[in-house]
Design a protein around this nucleic acid. Sequence first.
DNA 1: GATCATTTGTCAACAGTGTTGACAAATTGC
DNA 2: GCAATTTGTCAACACTGTTGACAAATGATC
Lengths: 217, 217
Amino acid sequence: MGRPATLSRSGIIAAAEVLVRDHGVAALTARRLGNALGCDPTALYRHFTTMSDLEREVGDRFLRAVDVRALDGDDWRTTIRRICLKLRRVQVRQPRLAALVSAAPTRLANEMRITEALLRELDRGGFSGDQAATAYHALIELTVGSAAIDAPLATQPADTRRRTYSDWRREYTELSPAESPASVAVAPHLYLGSADTRFEAALDLLLDGISAQQRIQ
Amino acid sequence: MGRPATLSRSGIIAAAEVLVRDHGVAALTARRLGNALGCDPTALYRHFTTMSDLEREVGDRFLRAVDVRALDGDDWRTTIRRICLKLRRVQVRQPRLAALVSAAPTRLANEMRITEALLRELDRGGFSGDQAATAYHALIELTVGSAAIDAPLATQPADTRRRTYSDWRREYTELSPAESPASVAVAPHLYLGSADTRFEAALDLLLDGISAQQRIQ
DNA sequence: GATCATTTGTCAACAGTGTTGACAAATTGC
DNA sequence: GCAATTTGTCAACACTGTTGACAAATGATC
């Protein structure tokens, strides 16, 4: 009963998703979203208690794109690697949204789906419940955490990004060799390639560590 | 020449540090800081071009607390471990500030100091420049990234935190065993202990992976 | 010593944010 | 028909960062 609703939770989330996709997450404000929906901004508060409630839901919505199926012939490590890379790719595209999602697990549908897949693969790898939980936490912290770090720069165009990285590298090169010998020595290797390749390398190191547990028992 | 300055960059930063320490990072606004300094909020813009400039500087200020010296007899791995744990501890205490610092390297004094120490230890461990850079990136992404994730909850009192974790664990336990078998099976091991111990375990796994590189050449 | 440029702080104002509380419209149950 | 309930609208509050005009206070120059 009551006045018939013209708005709905899912409709609002869908509109919010479009807004974020087209104009970035900074555009996700009550007034802009109300405008897009043709309703008063405060009408949103009838369906979400607070704006970050809505953001949480939109954040999970973006995780739909993460395909967690294991491909034929792929072992646990290959599959986990692919899921983490994909998860990162999605998170990195939505800077501040990623920060919001990562602030606390949303424990909404898509996040649960990804968790299940990761734990499934760890089980397939023969890890104990305890080992699997530890490995899962480590993978999530690295993947989501590094996405939160890299997201801001990821919104910039590719050449701006490259220039930024080479600027940083140069800064380390030009440090005083007396005070910062190690930085100066390693500088040519810092911030080479893309943030994605650096994450890939980090993920491989972590997976090496996790694999080693497998044999230890 | 010109009108004599009653404010200074360092004085403003110091006041901002106190403000953040006493009332949390949310209190770091132009008006509140101006109030604390007994000046007009817009006077700050004579010393910082923008508020996030100021935040960047305050963020680096907090990193002073990270002691990077190697203790006698400690090998590279032990020292790196201690630095990362300490870095995390500082970052976690300042939720949103950590997010700001991690958004882009501040490349200010204290951050450079920590970088130098990590690279120094990796050199001591016999890693090549390329290996050291990769390991450094991985360590920073895990440490700073996971701090950004865990920071929001870290501000809550300990028993609230414990309750939150056990709530999450229960949520995974109560999933449908048909749809989410792996989650249900591993649930009793999820979110056990503190976020700090989970990070420690993740760091150890990563360090295992990094150590393995040492022997590969 | 007066004048001038320059620096620095003050003030009012703008455009934006989330959110609340009173009010009106539109439905269902009695 | 009346009451209860839901839902959207509207005005308003308390904030936010930031800008541009203005005034005060200095050192340098004529």
